[in-house]
Design a protein around this nucleic acid. Sequence first.
RNA 1: GCCCCCUUCGUCUAGCGGCCUAGGACAUCGCCCUUUCAAGGCGGCGGCGCGGGUCCGAAUCCCGCAGGGGGCGCCA
Length: 484
Amino acid sequence: MSEIRVRFAPSPTGYLHVGGARTALFNYLYAKNTGGKFILRIEDTDLARSTDESINAILRSMKWLGLDWDEGPEKGGEFGPYFQTQRLDTYNKYAAQLLESGHAYYCFCSQQEKKDDAEAQGSKYPGTCRAISLADAKKRLAAGEKAAIRFKMPAKEIKFKDIVRGEVSFDGSLFGDMVIIRQDGVPTYNYAVVIDDALMNITHVLRGDDHISNTPKQIAIYEAIGFKMPEFGHISMILGPDGSRLSKRHGATSVEEYNKNGILPEAFVNYLALLGWSPEGDREIFPLEEMIKEFSLSRVSKSAAIFDSTKLKWMNGMYIRSLSDDQLLERVLPFMISEGLISAEEAETKKEWLLKIVKTIKNSFDLLTEAPAKAALFFGEDYEIKTDDPEVAKYIENKEITGKALGFIIEELNAMPEYGPAAVKAAIKKAQKTLGFSGHDVFMPLRVSLTGLSGGPGVYDMFDILGKERVTLRLNNFLKKYTA
RNA sequence: GCCCCCUUCGUCUAGCGGCCUAGGACAUCGCCCUUUCAAGGCGGCGGCGCGGGUCCGAAUCCCGCAGGGGGCGCCA
């Protein structure tokens, strides 16, 4: 059995979006699962819209996701080049062959823009230039006329067995003769994709559902040239929350945005994989390595899936919590730096302290971007006292309890020979006993004055991370402001 | 307009003729844990689009309908 070769072939007309990312992922998983090769090819034949910027963005996103390709840009490979604009001679060679064999013809019709023309919808090219002989066409070309090359679509039923959908059939006569080489000599998608897939020995074409009706056209070209046919598998689309095609108005659509929004690539990949594929059993959280082991095309869903950012967020939280404090700090630090909480240099010297912070806030956020706000409490003294929180207000109003509790602890702190968790704990216990207060009535005043919140980090953690000076400062400030 | 595809809780899905009183996950609600908030644990609510068949028996097979999505470019 020959080696399995799959490919992901984005066109660089924008960033890598979630649908493309999932297609790439499924190709990657299939290749790795079968010990095959994953090829990346850039389909840049739309000269007007393709940009280097997009190519870079796509490569960046692929790397971020961890979808390493075996052949393609930056890597090369024996079937290159992997940019379509660098393969023009090849396309021309096969076009000439199709012309000679009578499967294609020159078309001198003027270009019509029928993109937005509602009435033109469904109208296929009538085949006006089919009748022009190759010899006549060559004369006109020699005389300076411009022509595109069209493929003669056979008027027969075209069937194929889709890996995910099963038998699919189309009536070829319903398709018009498509342009395969434009007037400017650049090939069109449906043609170039066949030449490349065939020449790159692609064995399985796994792509988005939106290509399913292109497949019969491509099959016709495979047959006309006599190329070996790959297998086709069409993966359903990803929809927005309202069930329409995922678009900008639904929120982030590019992979890069998810990176910026604090999603971990391993969580994103995990979520994407489960959108349309399910493993045997009930497990939902598993690393790429295990997905590779378990991946199977027979378990890919046929129906479209709605992108649920809430579940993605949950999954991201699961991954955040599975990271060690050290790993999490590494991920979260860039966000803390960009939010101005700390500088990179300062972070170097305060690593132990930062690790404590990370540890205490670890299970209180699901996105890396949420970490700075959670950590802000530990940086600087201008944290907000949430007086509109009823629990907070309660202890501000109850000046007696709050005043006594805080006053007691301040005195204890001043008298404390050695500040530390054990001493702090003893002081709090002593406060309860001496004042005759419930635990709640000692903890809440401390919590409210130290954090300004009714929830949040543990009081002991606050004492530990803030240190004696800052704790004393916060307690005194609070007393002065609210119980004087 | 024509063609193709899809259809199980709000969402992602398991199910491939009897193991289904339809299972899991997110969300939601409740309880437990707890100095608080989370996290975590436990539990509740909630679904086979509709109509015909086939069969002793259908979420599962067939047909029709409806709804949704995609395509019909010298875009990919």
